[in-house]
Amino acid sequence: MRRYELLKSITPLLTDEEFVICNLGFPSQELYSLRDSDNHFYMLGSMGLSSSIGLGLSMEIDNTVIAIDGDGSVLMNLGTLSTIALEDCKNFILFIVDNGSYGSTGDQPTHTAKGTSLAAIAKAAGIDSSVEVAGADAADKLAQCMKTPGPHVIVAKVEPGSQAMNPIPLTSLAIRDRFREAVKAAQAKT
């Protein structure tokens, strides 16, 4: 199972009640092709910040926020795990696709391929609900986390590799504005 098949396994869980921050170009293209929504913020640059954007959003809304992140990206912004722990947002899920590689740059191995456990780091940072699961079990785990108070960190282990995709045919401002409107509509409901 690669990231594409993993994302395919979790998209049936998504409704327009959740807000998703998605990390970088390839994962965002894969998610876009599987399921697009105004509730998806495709963060196409700023590697490492999907988790922090998700955190900032979850502080402000009641809906579930899922930040889809990568192993290489989380390794670039480990400090935010401690902030996620301190903030203790019940509606926040950090879903880490751990393929042990920098998928956007040619699948060079990351340190998680050589023994670093992001789930253990997240737990040590203070996020009690931090688990590593096989990619095939990640959808069940995510479904369970969506029903229980977080914050949750799910580290889904998969094989390296990306699905060939076209760029997302949306401008940065279109991604931004439709997402912001969707958040505003959700806030108006609560």
Binding site: I21, F41, S46, G48, L49, S50, S51, S52, I53, G54, L55, G56, L57, S58, M59, E60, I61, V65, N77, G79, T80, S82, T83, E87, R176, F179, R180, V183, K184, Q187
Partner: peptide, 21 residues
């Protein structure tokens, strides 16, 4: 909120701004 690093702060602020702050 105190944050660990400026990029993290930029990310958190992005999430908050998307929610109208």
């Amino acid at each position: 909120r105190a944050v660990n690093r400026e990029e993290e702060g930029l990310g958190i602020c992005t999430g908050a701004w998307l929610a109208g702050r």
